[in-house]
Amino acid sequence: MILPQIKLPWAKTSELSANARLHWSKRYRKVKAQKAAADALARAARWHLVSIPDGAEVAVTVTICPPTRGSIPDDDNVISAQKGAFDALADVLKINDRRFRLQAPRRGERCRDGAIIINAEVA
C-alpha cells in the first residue's frame, strides 16, 4: 500500500542535525514545532486512517530539495535533522519508528524555501 506523499518544510540542519550544539531548550522548541508541522501534514494527507499490519515495515524514500540560497548540507545531516518529523509520522501511523526502513535519500531540485518530500509504502 502506497501512502500519499508529504512535503515537509525544510529544517535548518545547522540547528537540528546530530552535529548541532544548540542549547537543549532551544532545540526542544524547534523539534516540537517540527513535530507539530509533520503531524498536521500527515493528518491532512489522511495517514491517520491507514492501518499498518503487525510486523509490516514502512519503506520511506526521502527526496531532499534544498533551499535556493546557501550551501547544500550532506545527506546524513539532513536526515538526522528530520528525526522529530519521523517521530511524528510514526505517531500518526501508530507504529514505532523502528519499523521505518529509510531508502537512500534522493536529491531533488532546489526550491525557494527548501523541502523534504516523503514517499512511503507499507511492505
Rank of each mutant, 00 (worst) to 15 (best):
N19E: 15
V122R: 15
W47K: 02
A115C: 13
D97V: 00
A40K: 14
E57F: 02
A104Y: 08
R112F: 13
R106E: 15
N119I: 00
S17N: 07
A37G: 00
H23K: 14
V60G: 05
I64S: 06
S80N: 06
A20Q: 01
E15P: 00
A88M: 11
A90V: 01
A20L: 01
A81K: 04
I64A: 03
A115M: 13
A120R: 12
K83N: 04
H48L: 00
R98S: 15
A44F: 05
A90E: 12
P53F: 11
A56D: 12
L49I: 00
V58L: 15
I118E: 09
S14D: 05
W10C: 11
A36F: 01
G70Y: 12
P105Q: 00
A85N: 11
V122D: 09
T68C: 11
S14Y: 03
D54I: 00
P105K: 00
G55R: 02
K32N: 08
S80K: 05
G108Y: 13
E15V: 08
S71I: 10
T61F: 02
G84D: 08
D39S: 02
D75P: 10
F100W: 03
A40S: 09
Y28A: 09
G114F: 09
D74C: 04
I118Y: 06
D87Y: 10
A38Q: 13
R29A: 14
A123D: 11
A88Y: 11
Q82T: 13
M1P: 06
Q103E: 08
D87P: 00
K7Y: 00
H23E: 15
K94N: 10
L89G: 12
E15M: 10
C65A: 06
R29E: 03
K94P: 01
N77G: 13
A115S: 15
W47T: 00
Q103A: 09
D54Q: 09
N119M: 09
A45I: 03
G84P: 14
N96L: 03
F86C: 05
P73G: 08
L49A: 13
V78N: 05
G108I: 11
V62E: 02
V31W: 01
A33N: 09
R99Q: 12
I64P: 07
I72D: 06
V92S: 02
A81V: 03
S25V: 13
A88K: 08
D76R: 10
I117N: 11
D91Q: 13
R29T: 05
T63Q: 10
A115D: 12
L93Y: 05
A44Q: 15
V31Q: 02
V60L: 14
L22F: 08
L49N: 10
M1A: 09
A115P: 14
I79T: 04
L49W: 01
K32I: 01
S51L: 04
V78G: 08
D74W: 02
